[in-house]
Design a binder for these strands. Structure first.
Length: 567
RNA sequence: UGGGGUAUAGCCAAGUGGUAAGGCACCGGUUUCUGGUACCGGCAUUCACAGGUUCGAAUCCUGUUACCCCAGCCA
């Protein structure tokens, strides 16, 4: 199955197509505007996909612009990690990386312009006072006592704010719009605030920094953005976005369009909660394979194509949504089913002795790298007298329809022979020590005579197998909507204690050649990815479970158990 | 309660007056040296609800309900 884009229609592409057909739009320019104050997560991936794929679809361009108007919260490390994540996802922005901070000079000029028009004023109210004056959802606000300052005084004060004469919080520049507007965002929003902070791009040049509302639309206009796509919570800001463009001599008139942000169940994307998980040591950093960050997903073994496909399959609309994480699993499985080479790895070893194989016997079996892809070549599977199979693949007293190994039963060793279990050898405590089996030598690449062996199990030669560390990952939360908990304790009470379990397994020898970030399907088990950082350290082989294979047998067993309980 | 939005299956989602796409999940079956994959079939007589217009309504009109967002000098 292909995981590449088929450009399913959505309300954004429909609208742009219509604009192009009626001549309203000639070309399109979009932008992805992250604030460099944290790591990108799966929700950002959606926004990246929306902006880049729309531009691509209509032969336009997409810019990367850091929305860096708040030096108190931003860091250079994030401007680096964000660029890496975008590139890893497979996107290249048009031109150089841009920063809203590049436009600070222009923005400041425009602030002066507004003041001169009588459309902005310097306010001395404290933050608390401003809140009181703003009114409530149902009551109009009241004008600040400083609202009627003269243009001259405002100009003077603004300049002195900019030169650092006042302390943080002493004054702000506000737009003069309407303190009684039913839209609270229009009740004289703050345009500039004083911050005596070092900025990662502009250093110590500025003492005042523009607010989002004063920077975003103008930055879009400067860059010639045609479609400024953002999430629904900015809808109430659109009148303000347009107000700025109407009252300023901007070079272009971009339009803001909102879409619903994507949520995924069994995970969180709130920055505060993500940070809490890292700081409390619940996960091992921002790129822990359980994190929904792009770097975490990457380390877990998600591929760029699978993430793009996931974005596409979940669509773009305006209704609040919570996507089932099963869709994410589906996206990565379909990519890896096609593109991951196969290997065998025993996670829970049970020794098997092949009694009719000589002590010194050793043979090399050639197996396909992928059952449907000759281009993936072959690998060698050594076979000798002793081997390991997974303990789950043997049952002393099997239920009906158990197609694996059991006393007196036959099973096929994947890519090799059919064997029969002749004897179960036990330890003193009654646990199983090993299985003694006999090989049917006529079954290599051939079906046995006169009977059908339905089961196929994976195995690894005891002498040749290589030890591997396998990290099995699962959802971080046991509840569908962990984001709904506001209280920290309540939130943390829903962590999945089994989100990580590490086991020592035995892999086929070819796994020794695996490079960090190589993907594999461990046959009959799941998809795994050699850890980006730990794999290969001191010769240790470390594999992360990206996602398990679907398990029809487990599902049937579970259903049978439930039916048994009820009946 | 003021303003702004959204309601189509368990979850996403197309559909814009002509008789409910697709995907995920789920349920059957076929194939299979992965209980995987692939393939075949099933899964909304109805689109939040109630009226109305129309030959015909998820789409238009009226009303109602539910849910989401907004009272940072965050974005």
């Amino acid at each position: 199955m292909s995981v590449e884009s088929s450009n399913a229609p959505n309300f954004l592409s429909n609208q742009i197509r219509e604009e192009i057909s009626n001549g309203q739009t000639q070309h399109i320019v979009t932008r992805f505007p992250p604030e460099p104050n944290g790591f990108l997560h799966i929700g950002h991936a959606k926004s990246i996909w929306v902006n880049f794929s729309l531009a691509e679809q209509f032969g336009g361009r997409c810019h990367l612009r850091f929305d860096d108007t708040n030096p108190a919260k931003e860091e250079e490390q994030f401007v680096q990690s964000i660029q890496q994540d975008i590139q890893w996802l497979g996107y290249r922005w048009s031109g150089e990386v841009r920063y809203a901070s590049q436009y600070f000079d222009q923005l400041y000029e425009w602030a002066i312009h507004l003041v001169k028009q009588g459309l902005a004023y310097v306010d001395d109210l404290s933050a608390e006072q401003m809140r009181e004056y703003r009114g409530t959802l149902t009551e109009p606000g009241r004008p600040s006592p400083y609202r009627e300052r003269s243009v001259e005084e405002n100009l003077d004060l603004l300049e002195r704010m900019a030169t650092g004469e006042f302390g943080e919080g002493e004054k702000v520049l506000r737009a003069r719009i309407d303190m009684a507007s039913p839209n609270i965002n229009l009740r004289d929003p703050v345009l500039y605030r004083i911050r005596h902070a070092h900025h990662h791009q502009t250093g110590d040049k500025w003492k005042i920094y523009p607010s989002y509302d004063f920077a975003h639309g103008q930055s879009d206009a400067i860059e010639g953005i045609t479609h400024s796509i953002c999430t629904l919570e900015f809808e109430d800001h659109r009148p303000l976005y347009n107000w700025m463009l109407e009252h300023l001599p901007v070079p272009a008139r971009p339009r803001q369009i909102e879409f619903a942000r994507m949520n995924v169940n069994y995970t969180v994307t709130s920055k505060r909660k993500l940070r809490l998980l890292v700081e409390k040591g619940i996960v091992n950093g921002w790129d822990d394979p359980r994190m929904p960050t792009i770097s975490g997903l990457r380390r877990r073994g998600y591929t760029p194509a699978s993430l793009r496909h996931f974005c596409e399959m979940t669509g773009v609309a305006r209704s609040a949504n919570v996507v089932d994480i099963a869709m994410l699993y589906s996206a990565i499985r379909s990519d890896l089913e096609e593109n991951a080479p196969r290997a065998m790895c025993v996670l829970n070893p049970l020794k098997v002795v092949l009694t009719n194989v000589a002590e010194d016997h050793e043979e090399q079996i050639e197996a396909a790298g992928h059952p449907a892809r000759e281009d993936m070549g072959t690998r060698i599977l050594p076979l000798a007298r002793e081997l390991y199979i997974d303990a789950d693949d043997f049952m002393e007293e099997p239920p009906k329809k158990f197609f694996r190994l059991a006393p007196g039963k036959e099973v096929r060793l994947r890519n090799a022979y059919v064997i029969k279990c002749d004897e179960v050898v036990k330890n003193d405590d009654g646990s199983i020590k090993e299985l003694r089996c006999s090989v049917d030598f006529d079954t290599l690449g051939a079906n046995p005579e006169g009977r059908k062996v339905k089961g196929v199990i994976h195995w690894v030669s005891a002498e040749h197998g290589v030890p591997v560390e396998v990290r099995n990952y699962d959802n971080l939360f046991t509840v569908e909507a962990p984001d709904k908990f506001k209280d920290e304790q309540e939130f943390l009470a829903n962590l999945n204690p089994e989100s990580l379990s590490v086991t020592e397994g035995i892999g086929e020898p070819s796994l020794r050649d695996a490079q960090p970030e190589d993907h594999f399907q461990f046959e009959r088990v799941g998809y795994f990815c050699a850890d980006r950082f730990d794999h290969g350290d001191n010769g240790k082989l470390v594999f992360n479970r990206t996602v398990s294979l679907k398990d029809g047998w487990a599902k049937a067993q579970k259903k049978a158990a439930q039916a048994g309980q009820q009946g």
